[in-house]
């Protein structure tokens, strides 16, 4: 019995070694920070450093995922490929609020670490340090919205999934072109002022140009919050009254449900006119959370809300198409209703 187990162990080790040898063929690439890194030709086990990278990896090569930064919530599970639902939550490795233990990271035996987001000196250093400590190549990819098509192609190549990368990139390019066509038909003065409400009180928001509100800028919404030094900020309801936004986009279901009855929001044009929209959030948010490729469908959704006449978008068909293509899951009628049904005005 013991011998049998030993044999199995040896066979397993051999199989692993063979797989490792296959993956061990490497080539050198230059990442977004200009670092030269040696990466495997066909990465089989990839660790995503944070939620944006995990979303990107999920859409390109789900079977290479070794875990999630955070366990997906119960409401997200129906929209995720079954084989990824039970992956362990390993934590994140993105500068602020690291939660992954490097030993846990190593025991997941990744052959590549990918981070996707803002490229700063902090992240460059982090990448260099983690790579030195773990001996695992660590690639940083620029996470801004306009570069999504290029990113999908590059990462597709990096993950040895060039066709998939090309398909998704083509969708992203078509989406941007579609938005540009809509914007060409909407003169500047008909683009509404928009306030992004976060948190149950709705007084957390994001400034113009920040990664959290980037897609509002992209669809031509005039973010009432001027460009600020940092992304997220808290404001007073009185400030919102002074801004008088025509449309409110929120990612908080609690706020969306109660805003029409909250005394301090009375008379805000968006609340008065029923122009408060709750962005769907499963499995990934439409606005940010995380700021990744999930925002492509958010662009269409928001364009449809802001310009219902010019943007002739069948949002249910679009969501079905996007979820099938990017997430590998086709939502059925009930799932679509659950996802978009709350997207109307509260109290409608």
């Amino acid at each position: 019995m013991r011998r049998l187990r030993l044999t199995a162990l040896v066979a397993g080790a051999l199989a692993l070694a063979a797989a490792a040898a296959l993956a061990a063929e490497t080539h050198t690439i230059t990442d977004a920070t200009g670092r030269q890194i040696e990466v495997p030709n066909d990465p089989r086990r990839v660790f995503a450093a944070g939620p944006p990278a995990a979303t990107l990896l999920y859409t390109l090569k789900p079977d290479a995922m070794v875990g999630w930064p955070r366990a997906p919530g119960a409401e997200d599970l129906p929209f995720l490929r079954p084989e990824t639902r039970d992956l362990p939550a390993l934590g994140r490795l993105t500068g602020k609020g690291d939660t992954v233990n490097l030993e846990v990271l190593l025991s997941a035996r990744p052959d590549l670490i990918v981070d996707y987001g803002t490229v700063t000196a902090t992240y460059r250093d982090l990448a260099r340090r983690v790579q030195a400590q773990t001996g695992t190549p660590y690639a940083l990819i620029d996470g801004s919205l306009p570069t999504i098509p290029a990113t999908l192609r590059r990462l597709g190549d990096l993950l040895a999934e060039p066709e998939r990368g090309g398909t998704l990139a083509a969708y992203a390019e078509a989406t941007f072109a579609e938005i540009d066509a809509i914007l060409a038909a909407v003169p500047e003065d008909r683009r509404p002022s928009v306030y992004l409400a976060r948190g149950p009180e709705g007084i957390e928001t994001a400034a113009r140009g920040s990664i959290n509100a980037e897609i509002i800028d992209r669809v031509g919404g005039r973010n009432v919050v001027g460009a600020g030094p940092d992304g997220l900020l808290t404001v007073s309801p009185e400030q919102v009254q002074a801004w008088a936004p025509e449309v409110i986009v929120t990612i908080d279901a609690d706020f969306a449900a109660h805003v029409s009855a909250m005394p301090e929001w009375q008379g805000v044009p968006a609340v008065r006119d029923g122009q408060v929209y709750l962005a769907p959030s499963a499995p990934f948010g439409f606005i940010d959370s995380p700021p990744s490729v999930n925002r492509l469908i958010g662009l269409k959704w928001l364009a449809e809300k802001l310009y219902p006449e010019e943007a002739r978008i069948d949002i249910e068909a679009e969501v079905t198409r996007f979820y099938t293509l990017f997430y590998g899951v086709t939502p059925d009628r009930a799932a679509l209703d659950g996802l978009l049904g709350t997207a109307g005005h509260p109290g409608e």
Partner: peptide, 14 residues
């Protein structure tokens, strides 16, 4: 440590 760093942590800190 357990809070969502994008969503809950700014609210908690504030």
């Amino acid at each position: 440590l357990m809070a969502d760093p994008d969503d809950q942590l700014p609210a908690i800190t504030f």
